[in-house]
Design a protein around this nucleic acid. Structure first.
Lengths: 232, 232
DNA sequence: CAGTGGTCTAGACCACAGC
DNA sequence: CTGTGGTCTAGACCACTGC
């Protein structure tokens, strides 16, 4: 039992799809037919088909059959963390300020709260090899008794901050990426003297019920960051 | 059988994880225990656990048990297509030039080919509401008899170009995202007269065997694009 | 109606962990 | 050795599809 039977089923069918022998929309042999072809029980066939479905190769319509799926060519997976990216790692942070503020209109809207609610704002600078590479602002909903301890805030990523008060699983996140001309404040902190853009990454953290819990905006020197993604 | 039993198993365990009752590293009840708890057969329990594993909640170690996984807080899913993004849709394209060229060193390296191989380069402009919003270059490996028909090239996305010669499933893709000061050529084409950065998205298409098949670089006006991603 | 996929059972043997 | 998860079987009933 070195290689499971369902693996052979998966590879046989996948090969037909990759080679173009089976095209999107084409029907796969029915499960009972595959049972006979491979001489196995139906649960084994279904295990193989489940894997192909998970990989995005096929889908099934009850009562009709299994069909080759049109691949989603626009889907990418991207790994992002404010402190770590492919061309540099943040090795030092500097806490600029921590404030409890009333949100302006845009922020109140983003966090879906009243403008009279308190919000914690945390401004930090990220360094790599002694150079400032990113300016970072986080806005967190303020809860009474929330620990605002410098040590905890200074080196934490956004997820880590929220995870202090919430189970990490109960979190959804959204990213927004764009390029911008830096403001004077950011130019000052990032030692930008000439025409150099910043790459801005906004992270929004939401509860499973889609209630916003925090907003983070990180401004990277354009020459210090590249984000990578891959299909599948 | 409106709601399958395994769904109840999934939800029961997921609730324990979301609420923090079960923490990363904790063991789930063994499959046989769960069989007794829910009064079902082992295959049904395993079906439920398989779903939780697929969702990233748990993992299993043969001979030991099932355990709660530490969630991957850095993983995002991003949908990207040169022509379509959340704040604008390309409604017109202009083919600037199509050439067969010898690659320079960087390109030869990116495509993993000799500098004496032929490469097709395609330069295009993307428009939204009459305004140029992106400058786009594609480099494709040249195969004898490759159809270089203006009509086919003009409006195709990168994936569509490659799909002409390869089964779409047999493709892997890589993305690279960064911000840049536009070159004079790009400023000219994108009507940029002041200090405005471009967001650059490089797409590399690879065969399943990791052989590069093409490279696409799209330069977007910074004020005309935002990329969005979500966890899970 | 026959055929399809979706769910579920009650067994079985295996390889592996840990004692 | 016992207990664990991984694989597999040979049935079963269901809801749905299409004729």
């Amino acid at each position: 039992m070195v290689v499971p039977i369902y693996t052979q089923i998966v590879e046989t069918i996948r090969k037909k799809i990759d080679s173009g022998e089976l095209k999107p929309g084409d029907a796969i042999d029915s499960e009972n037919t595959l049972c006979k072809e491979f001489g196995v029980s139906r649960m084994t066939v279904r295990k193989g088909l489940a894997i192909l479905a998970q990989e995005g190769y096929i889908y099934s319509i009850p009562g009709k059959g299994n069909f080759v799926k049109k691949p989603d060519l626009t889907k990418y997976t991207l790994y992002y963390d404010e402190m770590t990216n492919s061309i540099n790692i943040v090795d030092k942070t500097r806490l600029l300020e921590v404030n409890i503020i009333m949100p302006d209109e845009k922020l109140a809207d983003d966090l879906q709260i009243s403008r009279r609610k308190n919000v914690i704002s945390i401004k930090r600078l990220f360094y790599t090899d002694g150079d400032p590479v990113a300016f970072d602002i986080k806005y967190l909903l303020y809860y009474r008794g929330m620990p605002i301890v410098e040590k905890e805030i200074k080196e934490a990523t956004f997820s880590e901050m929220i995870a202090k008060t919430t189970a990490a699983f109960a979190i959804k996140k959204e990213l927004m990426i764009y390029a911008e001309v830096p403001s004077e404040e950011i130019k000052y902190y990032l030692n930008i003297y000439n025409e150099l853009p910043v790459l801005v990454v906004e992270q929004k953290l939401l509860s499973k019920e889609n209630k916003p819990m925090g907003l983070g905006i990180t401004y990277y020197r354009g020459d210090y960051i590249k984000l990578y993604g891959t299909s599948q």
